[in-house]
Amino acid sequence: MTKNALITGASRGLGLALTRALVEEGWRLVITARGVAALDQVTAELGSAQVTALAGDVADAGHRKLLADAAHGLGGLDLLVNNASGLGTTPLPPLADYPIDDLTGLFATNVIAPLALTQAVLPGLRERRGAVVNISSDAAIEAYEGWGGYGATKAALDQLSNVLAAEEPDVAVWWLDPGEMNTAMLAGAVGPKEASGAPDPESVVPTILRLVRERPGSGRLAHR
Rank of each mutant, 00 (worst) to 15 (best):
A189L: 12
A10V: 01
E180R: 04
T153H: 14
T90N: 11
P206H: 08
V163C: 07
L186C: 14
L87W: 12
D177F: 08
S85N: 07
A140M: 04
A70G: 07
A198M: 12
G151W: 12
A195C: 12
L211A: 02
V132F: 03
L186E: 13
G73P: 15
G151E: 00
V121T: 10
V30C: 11
L211Y: 09
D102I: 14
A155L: 06
T183E: 08
P114A: 04
D158S: 14
N110W: 00
L103G: 02
A131K: 02
G151A: 08
M1Y: 09
G191L: 03
E25K: 08
R34K: 12
T109L: 13
N134P: 11
N110D: 06
L176K: 05
A49E: 14
L6K: 07
T19L: 05
A70N: 14
A139E: 08
D177P: 02
P216V: 09
D57G: 02
G179P: 06
L209R: 09
R64P: 02
T153Y: 04
A71W: 08
G149I: 08
S11R: 00
T2W: 04
E145R: 13
A5T: 03
V171D: 04
V81P: 01
D78N: 14
V205E: 01
D158Q: 07
G15E: 05
L186Y: 14
V163W: 00
S136P: 04
G62F: 10
A172G: 14
P94S: 12
I208F: 00
L92H: 10
M185W: 02
I112N: 08
D40C: 06
A10T: 07
A140P: 09
G75D: 10
A61H: 09
V51S: 07
A96F: 11
G191K: 01
N162C: 08
S85D: 10
I100Q: 12
R224Q: 10
A108Y: 09
E168A: 06
V171T: 13
L160C: 05
W175C: 10
E127F: 11
I7T: 01
E168P: 06
L87Q: 10
G47Y: 03
V36M: 11
H72M: 15
G75L: 12
E180T: 02
I112T: 13
K3A: 15
Q50F: 11
T90K: 05
L106W: 01
V23C: 00
